[in-house]
Amino acid sequence: LQGGVFTDNISDLGAANDSIGLDGRIVFAPKIGNAQLHLGASGHWRDLGDNITTVRYRQRPLIHSVSTRFINTGNIAGATSETSYGLEAAVISGRFHASAETHWAKVNRMAMPNPTFFGGSVEAGLFLTDDKREYKGGVFKGVKVKNPVGSGGIGAVQFNVRYDRLDLVDAGIIGGTQDGYMASLIWTPVNQVRFLLNYGHLVYGDALGIVPGAPNNYSVDVFGARAQVSF
């Protein structure tokens, strides 16, 4: 069980900043034989306060070095609070792992319809080396490389595929839909160091006018490369 109460920065508190948020999460993580299961649910509520009257939801296409948001609700007027909840499930069995997550976000507005937006994903991955995803305390952890570079091995090599959907169309708000078909190749030569190659084919609908000059339905392809060091 996890929970939290959040408000604005202490230095910003006052008549102009009076929002407050409540968050909670529950996880059940049994083991069945050698398989680690993960089942979870979460909830979020935020009172926007007296001085916040708009909210906005938008997203870049997979990599954040791109400034364009192909899916974007724009400013939603009359907002008084946000309510969201989600479900999550995952399994780790040897070299294989799979996970799925869904989330609904509702904007509560004064004297106007309240839109509810949806996001969800499903992912599966397989290590090509004798490694596995680590898990502890309801959280996925970094890989403990069995045969790291420098000790006679090649490190850990992992291949993932993923589908996700984001729907920002409801109650008169046309923020577009996004269907993402993605794949990644991950090399972890030693603990705390990773190199990643990512590809995504992102299909957009109900998107007329979100990006100037773009049609109502179209797709983009995204390639990305990353290097990470954790400590």
Rank of each mutant, 00 (worst) to 15 (best):
N217F: 02
T54P: 10
F96R: 00
A79E: 08
R162M: 15
S67Y: 03
F96I: 07
Q158T: 00
I154T: 14
N108R: 11
P115M: 14
S67L: 13
R226F: 05
V169M: 06
V203L: 07
K106M: 08
L185N: 06
T53Q: 06
D206Y: 01
K146M: 11
T53R: 10
G78K: 02
D170Y: 09
D8N: 09
G40V: 03
F118E: 06
M182R: 12
G74S: 13
S151Y: 12
S99P: 01
K141H: 09
A100W: 05
L126D: 05
V190H: 00
P30K: 10
F140N: 04
S81K: 06
D8C: 03
A16T: 04
T7P: 01
L196Y: 02
P115L: 10
T80N: 13
A225T: 12
A105P: 00
L22V: 13
L185F: 09
A79K: 06
E101G: 07
T177R: 09
L37D: 05
Y57W: 12
I174T: 06
G180F: 00
A77L: 01
E82A: 14
V149E: 03
A89Y: 04
F195Y: 07
P30W: 05
P212D: 12
V157A: 03
G43S: 13
A79N: 04
L1W: 03
H97I: 00
S11Q: 04
A171W: 08
G180T: 07
A79I: 06
V122T: 12
N17C: 01
V139K: 08
G180I: 11
A89C: 11
E134A: 09
T73S: 14
G119L: 04
F96K: 08
N114Q: 10
D221K: 08
G152S: 08
T7I: 05
G94R: 02
Y57P: 00
T80R: 07
T102Y: 09
I32F: 04
L196H: 01
R194W: 00
T80M: 11
T102I: 15
R58S: 15
W45R: 14
